[in-house]
């Protein structure tokens, strides 16, 4: 198969240079991120500090919800903390899952998260609602910068994903419905000053 392919391929064509665009000021990135995230159906809360964001997060939880946290800061009573190598099926009735993504992209509000933070790969998809704690300092402008950072050797992963908003579909007459198969809502707690 490959011999025939080699024979049929066109002559060598060079790769173009990698694209790079200068980063906008932090305040601009933050404004753009919030605008785009809200535009695709996420809810965004802002806080000055991580502690402030946690406080806001606690307040938005409803009594009786089954809440999972992947953050050590939030693994106290009332939160489930996932364990490595667990069968993901045990989370079928999960209401809320809380994560802390590694990179946030201003141009499309995508949040990059890998197995390290997820612990169980199925979690951000199986939960009914997803909460994201995002440090303003992880904001980048575009996917070129995001691809560069998430591809660093130090960022090695077995599974990683960009998540932008709640799961959605418009397959029925192009009417947008949030909550297709994955989370019905995404709430982002954006914190810090970016310094």
């Amino acid at each position: 198969m490959l011999a025939a392919l080699r024979h049929n391929q066109p002559e060598h064509s060079v790769l173009p240079p990698l694209l790079y665009f200068p980063l906008a000021p932090a305040a601009e990135l933050k404004e753009q991120f919030i605008r785009i995230a809200t535009g695709i159906g996420s809810v965004v809360h802002t806080a000055d500090t991580f502690e402030g964001a946690l406080e806001l997060l606690q307040k938005t939880l409803q009594p009786g919800q089954k809440v999972l946290s992947t953050l050590p800061e939030l693994s106290s009573d009332g939160f489930i903390y996932p364990g490595k190598d667990q069968d993901p099926h045990i989370y079928a009735d999960l209401d809320v899952a809380v994560f802390k993504p590694l990179v946030a992209v201003a141009e499309n509000s995508a949040l990059w998260i890998t197995e390290e933070q997820l612990i169980v790969r199925a979690l951000p998809f199986i939960t009914q609602h997803i909460y994201m704690l995002v440090d303003v300092s992880v904001l980048v402008g575009d996917m070129h910068e995001a691809s560069r950072i998430t591809g660093l050797k130090s960022q090695e992963y077995g599974f990683g994903t960009y998540i932008a908003g709640p799961s959605k579909t418009a397959d029925i007459e192009q009417s947008l419905v949030l909550g297709a198969h994955g989370p019905r809502s995404m709430t982002i707690f954006l914190y810090g000053s970016g310094t």
Binding site: I40, S109, A110, M143, R148, I163, A164, S167, A170
Partner: peptide, 24 residues
Amino acid sequence: AHLGVFLRLLTRSATGQPITTYSS
């Protein structure tokens, strides 16, 4: 590193979204 180029183009061309909800 080339992925950034294609993920920027794919859904904007397809449906006008900035990116798909999941790029796994």
